[in-house]
Amino acid sequence: MTILTRRRLLAGATATLASGALAGCGLPRSGPNRSEIFAGSVLREGDSFILVVDDRVNAIAGVTPALAFSQGFAGAGVLGSDTINPGDVLSITVFENVDDGLLVPTGQNATILDEVQVDGSGFIFVPYAGRIRAGGNTPETIRRLIAERLGDQTPDPQVQVARIAGDGSTVSVVGGVGAQGVYPIERPTRTLSAMIARAGGIAIEPDIAQVTLVRGSHRGTIWFEDLFQNPAADVALRGGDRIFVEEDSRSFTALGATGAQSLVPFESQTISAIEAIAQVGGLSTTSADPTGVFVFRNEPEAIARALTGIPDLVGTQRVVYVLDLTRPNGMFYARDFAIRDEDTVYVTEAPFVQFDKLISAITGTLATVDTAASIGSG
């Protein structure tokens, strides 16, 4: 191969790679660059709102959904140590201080009404006392009600009430606890935190543990730590309650010029943009552009209106937050920016990275051409 032919091949390879690079294609990269992201703005050809993060944006967008019990849970009073339920079977013993009593046979001082079942409406029937409300009451309350009714007909009757069948008031505890199971509501375990302790305590990381209480068709969830920081969150239990202890299921996605590209679970109740970047190994020191840290998020209508100042926005809006870590206070803005569930954190490559790739590709191509030329001339 002649020198002229070699020069033509070299010039052709250089021109082809250079034109490909200028066109923004042909070379591998981790994702869109800053210009391409900004091209997606509603002010240009896209449908996203591009917002540079500052104190105002942080104040509006830094809303973290709170977990708390509704008033129906928080307002429930603490139960007694034992509560009778429909379907339970009771044993009632009546003592009378007269020879010819209402219920006690002659020559005896007591009579036992065995296997008295609480009906579906929560009532029992006791001779001479009539229908007594048993469901929802403690054995002590039932004892007092029977004694009052019989007291009108026999002097100072003494009554004992005990459950002989039935589960009583129980709750089920499942998930990340030391010992899953069904537990009775007793005097030491009448509140949520006490029942979790009775089940062996939390068996997962407390910082990301969530406690869900299900009562009938109602459900409420709180952070485990709130049980101790907020006494009002330690609600009273009811028979049939179900308690679920689970790890936080929130996550965000990290992409681009970071130490790792993956789906990242939350490791605490709140995560800032700086913490999110740190969790994936920080910015790549060889390729990341610190002026191009982006957070992609779908914002609800109310927050989008407040951010953009556009009052007639309807529905969820696509928002891209820009974090320039080189700006004055840029690190503080990133530290105060709260990452939310399903966010995408993306870091663009520095401009020189594509140039380096271009040079490497050209250099490699020139070496290949030169080798081919040497073979051809040999």
Rank of each mutant, 00 (worst) to 15 (best):
A209V: 13
P184D: 03
H218G: 01
V214Q: 15
A179E: 12
I204M: 10
V174S: 12
T189M: 04
R219P: 01
Q210T: 10
P184A: 11
D207E: 15
A209D: 07
I185A: 12
T189L: 05
V211L: 12
M195T: 02
T191M: 12
P188G: 10
L192G: 08
Y183I: 01
V173W: 03
I202Y: 09
A199W: 04
I196R: 04
Q210G: 06
Y183N: 02
I222H: 04
Q210I: 00
I196Q: 04
G216Y: 14
R187E: 15
A179Q: 13
L192E: 05
I196L: 14
I202P: 04
R219A: 00
S217Q: 14
V182S: 10
G181I: 05
G181V: 02
R219Y: 09
R187N: 12
D207G: 04
A209Q: 09
A179G: 01
I208G: 01
T212L: 09
R219N: 08
G200R: 14
I222G: 02
P188N: 14
S193W: 00
G181H: 06
I196M: 09
G216P: 05
G175V: 07
H218N: 13
V174D: 09
G176Y: 04
T191I: 13
G220A: 09
R198H: 07
T191D: 13
R198Y: 04
G216T: 02
E205N: 15
Y183W: 08
G201Q: 11
A197Q: 10
M195R: 00
A179V: 09
R198C: 05
T221Y: 07
S193H: 03
R219H: 10
I185T: 05
G216L: 13
I202L: 14
E186H: 01
S193V: 05
A203G: 04
G216R: 12
L213T: 06
V182P: 07
T189P: 00
G220N: 11
G200A: 10
A209Y: 01
A197L: 09
R190G: 00
G178K: 11
T189E: 08
G220R: 14
I204A: 00
G201K: 05
L192Y: 08
G201W: 05
L192R: 11
D207P: 00
Q180A: 13
V214I: 15
V214Y: 09
T212N: 11
V174N: 09
